Amino acid sequence: RNRTTFNSSQLQALERVFERTHYPDAFVREDLARRVNLTEARVQVWFQNRRAKFRR
């Protein structure tokens, strides 16, 4: 699988949700994935990586 590149509008939407919660539930992830046209799995991994970055 190739690395996913996120465009600025996708990142903006992802970061907005991250500000609200670092652990979005499945419903939030599904909705977000639909809105930014990504798979739920990509959204889930983005949050895992974003939390790791946040802890650094």
Results as ranks from 00 to 15, higher is better:
D31Y: 07
T21R: 01
K53A: 14
R51A: 04
E30N: 13
T21I: 05
T4A: 07
T4Y: 02
T5F: 07
R34G: 07
F47Q: 05
E19A: 15
A33Q: 06
R16P: 02
R20P: 00
R16F: 08
Q12R: 07
R3S: 15
E19C: 13
R55S: 14
A26Y: 14
Q48I: 07
S8Q: 13
F54G: 07
E15P: 01
R3D: 07
W46F: 04
F18H: 06
A33R: 06
S9G: 09
E19W: 14
R3A: 05
L11S: 09
E30P: 00
E30D: 12
E30W: 09
L38A: 09
E30L: 13
R42L: 14
S9I: 09
V45P: 10
R42T: 14
R42P: 02
L11A: 09
Q12M: 11
N49D: 12
V28T: 15
E40C: 11
L38K: 01
S8V: 08
S8Y: 08
F47A: 00
F6I: 14
Q48M: 12
V28I: 11
F47N: 02
Q44W: 04
W46P: 03
E40Y: 09
K53W: 08
K53I: 15
N37T: 04
R35S: 11
D25A: 07
R50W: 03
E30C: 11
T39N: 08
R34A: 09
N37Y: 03
N2V: 03
P24F: 00
E15K: 01
N37E: 07
V36P: 00
F54C: 09
R3G: 08
L32P: 07
E40K: 13
V17T: 11
A13I: 03
R56A: 11
Y23V: 02
T21L: 02
K53E: 15
R20G: 04
T39E: 10
R35F: 04
F6A: 08
E15S: 00
R29G: 01
K53D: 15
R29V: 15
F27G: 15
E40D: 06
V45F: 12
Q48F: 05
F18V: 03
R51C: 00
E19T: 14
D31P: 00
A41R: 09
A52N: 09
R3C: 10
R35K: 11
N49Y: 03
A13R: 02
R1G: 15
S8G: 10
D25N: 10
S9Q: 14
Q12V: 05
L38Q: 00
K53C: 13
T5M: 08
F47Y: 12
Y23K: 02
A33E: 03
H22P: 15
E40F: 06
R20I: 12
E40L: 10
R55G: 13
R55N: 11
R50D: 01
R20D: 08
R55V: 10
E40I: 14
A13H: 05
R35Y: 02
R34T: 09
